[in-house]
Deep mutational scan, measured.
Amino acid sequence: NQESVVAAVLIPINTALTVGMMTTRVVSPTGAPAEDIPRLISMQVNQVVPMGTTLMPDMVKGYAP
């Protein structure tokens, strides 16, 4: 099972992602793949992402898996 990126903390809208904001988990439906964490760092979210929420590609500005 592939791990997806999950918010480790509450991420406010327009916040640039840091490694400490993200964790990985096997979830369904799958979100952004765990191996993309290095690409996701410094990208901004376009909505509030509550802690424990799977990071879906459409939540991150300019990100395409």
Rank of each mutant, 00 (worst) to 15 (best):
P29E: 03
T30F: 14
I13A: 14
G20W: 14
T23D: 10
M56H: 06
T30W: 12
A8W: 08
A32C: 15
P57Q: 04
P33V: 06
L55Q: 05
M59C: 06
P33M: 05
G52N: 07
I41N: 01
V6K: 02
T24F: 09
T24V: 11
T53D: 10
P65W: 09
Q2G: 14
L10F: 13
T15A: 12
S42Y: 08
P29F: 06
G20M: 13
V49I: 14
P33T: 03
V48L: 13
A34H: 03
T15K: 02
D58K: 12
M43N: 04
Q44T: 14
V45K: 00
I37L: 11
Y63T: 03
T23Y: 10
V48H: 11
L40R: 00
L10Y: 13
E3N: 07
T15L: 06
Q2H: 13
T15D: 02
G62K: 02
A8I: 08
T53W: 12
M56V: 04
R39I: 13
A7V: 07
V27P: 05
Q44R: 14
T24Y: 08
T15H: 04
L17M: 03
V45T: 10
G31F: 05
L40A: 02
I37E: 04
V45G: 02
I41F: 00
L40I: 02
T30C: 14
M51D: 06
Y63L: 03
S28C: 12
A16C: 12
M56F: 08
T18Q: 11
P12H: 09
D58Y: 15
P12S: 09
M51R: 14
V26K: 12
V45F: 04
L10A: 06
T30K: 15
S4K: 02
M51T: 06
L10W: 11
R39Q: 10
P12G: 08
K61P: 11
P65Y: 09
P50K: 10
V26S: 10
E35D: 11
P57G: 05
M59H: 04
P65V: 12
T15C: 10
A16G: 08
I37G: 03
L55N: 03
P50W: 09
V19P: 11
M43H: 10
V48S: 13
A16V: 14
I37A: 03
I11R: 00
L55G: 03
V9F: 05
N46W: 09
S42Q: 08
T30H: 15
P57F: 08
P50H: 11
G20H: 14
Q44D: 04
T54Q: 03
T23N: 08
G52W: 08
G62H: 07
A64Q: 15
P12L: 09
A34V: 07
V45A: 01
D58R: 12
E3R: 14
G20Q: 14
S28I: 13
R25H: 08
A34T: 06
P33G: 03
V9G: 00
P38I: 09
G20E: 15
Q47Y: 07
L10I: 07
N46T: 11
L40H: 03
R39N: 07
A64E: 15
Q47T: 11
A8D: 01
L17Y: 07
N46P: 01
T53F: 11
I41A: 03
V48C: 15
Q2L: 12
V26F: 13
Q2T: 12
S42E: 05
M56A: 02
M59G: 05
M56P: 01
T18W: 09
K61M: 12
T30Y: 15
R25F: 09
M21W: 07
L55A: 02
M22S: 07
G20D: 13
T54L: 05
P65Q: 11
Q47C: 15
M21F: 07
S4P: 01
M43W: 06
M51K: 14
A8M: 08
L17G: 03
E3S: 12
R39K: 12
I41Y: 00
G20N: 13
I41T: 02
L17P: 01
L55V: 05
A32I: 15
T23P: 07
V5C: 07
V27C: 08
P50N: 08
A8K: 11
G31L: 02
V60I: 13
D36N: 02
A8S: 10
G31Y: 01
G52V: 04
P65D: 10
A32D: 04
R25W: 09
G62P: 04
I11E: 00
E3Q: 13
T54P: 03
A16Q: 12
V9A: 05
V9M: 11
V49S: 01
G52A: 02
S42G: 15
V6R: 00
P38T: 09
M59P: 02
S42A: 11
N1M: 14
N46M: 09
V9N: 02
V45R: 00
P57D: 02
M51H: 05
P29A: 02
A32E: 03
M51W: 07
Q44E: 14
P29V: 05
T30I: 15
P33R: 07
M56L: 10
S28P: 00
A16R: 15
V48N: 15
D36M: 08
S4A: 02
T18F: 07
D36W: 08
A34L: 05
T23S: 11
R39P: 03
L40F: 01
P12I: 09
M56K: 05
T18D: 07
V19E: 13
L10G: 04
V9R: 02
V9I: 11
V49L: 06
V27D: 06
G20L: 12
G52I: 06
G31E: 01
P12E: 10
R39C: 12
I11K: 00
E35N: 12
I41W: 00
G62M: 05
Q44S: 10
L40W: 06
P38D: 08
S28K: 12
M21T: 04
L17R: 00
T30D: 09
S4D: 02
E3F: 12
V45H: 02
K61Y: 13
P33A: 05
S28H: 14
A16E: 11
M59F: 06
A32T: 10
V60H: 03
A34W: 06
P57T: 04
P57K: 01
G31M: 02
I13T: 11
P29I: 04
P38A: 10
S28M: 13
Y63R: 00
I37D: 04
S4W: 08
Q2P: 12
V6M: 02
V6E: 01
A34P: 10
R39A: 07
I13G: 04
L17V: 05
Q2V: 13
M43L: 14
P33I: 04
V9Q: 11
T15G: 06
A34R: 03
S4Y: 07
M51F: 07
T30S: 14
A8E: 02
T23E: 10
N1F: 13
T54S: 03
A8Q: 06
V45N: 02
M43K: 14
M21S: 06
M22D: 07
N46D: 04
K61E: 12
N1W: 13
A32Y: 14
M22V: 07
I11H: 00
V45M: 05
E3K: 15
P29T: 01
N14S: 06
